[in-house]
Amino acid sequence: MGLRRRRRLTPYLLLVPGLAWLVVFYLLPSLNQLYVSLQEGNFETGYTFQWAWSTYSDAISTYDEQFLRSLRYAATATVLAFVISFPLAYFVAFKAGRFRNLLLLLIIVPFFTSYLMRTVAWQTILSDNAFVADRLRDVGLLDEDGRLLATTTAVIAGITYNFLPFMALPLYVALEKIDRRLIEAATDLYASRWQAFRRVTLPLALPGIFAGTLLTFIPAVGDFVNAQILGTSRQYMIGNVIQSKFLVVTDYPAAAALSFLLMAALLLCVFVYARVLGARNLQEAAL
């Protein structure tokens, strides 16, 4: 009797630390922010709670450009990261042999340096009179007054670079798990190498593709470091707006409202994505 009850309770007991963490560090701050987002006032005179939903509609109408830009940049960077990572992960998983661990280490190595430092390093690399820009001008790929830094390309490249491991590692894990004999079986059953890839490898890698794109896209949408360091105000993303509202303008209600809108937009994106690509295929691949 006691044993059966304990068995039933154990899964819930295992959830307690995680739930406690979420309540203290996520749910309570979120509720607090929700509360803040509905206040009105300013930093000097203080804020009062007003059910001020207008903050939300104002935020959308004022910053729709930054919202859309964030989604566009993040989507582009996610696609680029996928295009770069998939062959890389495939190579490491299937062809690297004894160099596999070394290559995996190399993918992770940038993480040993701080995110900010890496991005600042790119600022130096791309700056107007540095080696790269000079050489590109020499060969005529860049106009005399053309710039690498402070461009949309630089920001998207920065995001791609910074989030690449989040794409590459889940892809690697999914590919590495695939039993080679399945691919042999496919070629035994008259599939060419491309068909074997298309019919066996790719469907079995879907969970990794799903995880990798989400792990890249979600933080990329909210990113502000790349736009700030590698771009100009014309490249500013929603993260830059939120950051400046909180830390510079100290318009806490607007900052909180923007954060909630970002969260809602992301949830919507993930939901649609999971429905379109995920659900059915994921289920198929997981079984």
């Binding site: 039993d179 004999r181 399945l182 042999e184 079986a185 496919a186 066996v200 469907p203 079995l204 198929e284 691949a285 079984l287």
Partner: peptide, 9 residues
């Protein structure tokens, strides 16, 4: 195949 190698998906 010795391990059957059935396609799990």
């Amino acid at each position: 195949f010795q391990s059957y190698a059935l396609f799990p998906h």
